[in-house]
Amino acid sequence: MVGWRFLTPAAGDDPGPLSHLSSNQAKVLAAAYQTITGETKPESVREALRFMDGYLGRMDGRTRLEFSALLALVEHSPLVFHGYLGRFSSLPAQARAHCLTGWRRGATWRRPVYCALKDLSYLYYYTRPANWAGLGYAGPLVSADAVNPAFERRYQGLEAKS
């Protein structure tokens, strides 16, 4: 089965300025995110990218480098591993799903790639209240402005004045 590089638009529209992901990396991550979560709304994908970019910023520099390498590997490997002519981010949805299945079920060394993309994607997707409805999950029981002041009082005066 051969994918057609130019038949589908690049996954995810421009998410705006990102701090840690290049535009090419963002394209790959957006494609993976859509394939993993089934999300189709461009605005949601853009939001997801902004979130994932920020999240990567909280990781150790070496881990971020490894993640960059992982994205390059996913983007450039469809031909080698799956027989698709084209980059991952340019493949049709079904072909991308086939590639990800390969990362999931292939040789052991390939699985961390799949796990990293999956974990990051679902960390955003399943922390959106809109996606909790089907789970019977009510979400947080507190909001920042509803914390019992008695709890905070225990810590008042501990922090030095700025």
Binding site: T35, I36, T37, G38, A97, L100, R104, C115, K118, D119, S121, Y122, L123, Y125, Y126, T127, N131, W132, G134, L135, G136, Y137
Partner: peptide
């Protein structure tokens, strides 16, 4: 949910099926 999603198998429709059973 996000922690559970990481553990449940698969992705896409297969994974969504597992998540529906989560409760």
């Amino acid at each position: 949910p996000a922690g559970a999603a990481s553990m449940l198998p698969g992705f896409g429709a297969e994974h969504a099926g597992w998540m529906e059973k989560l409760p």
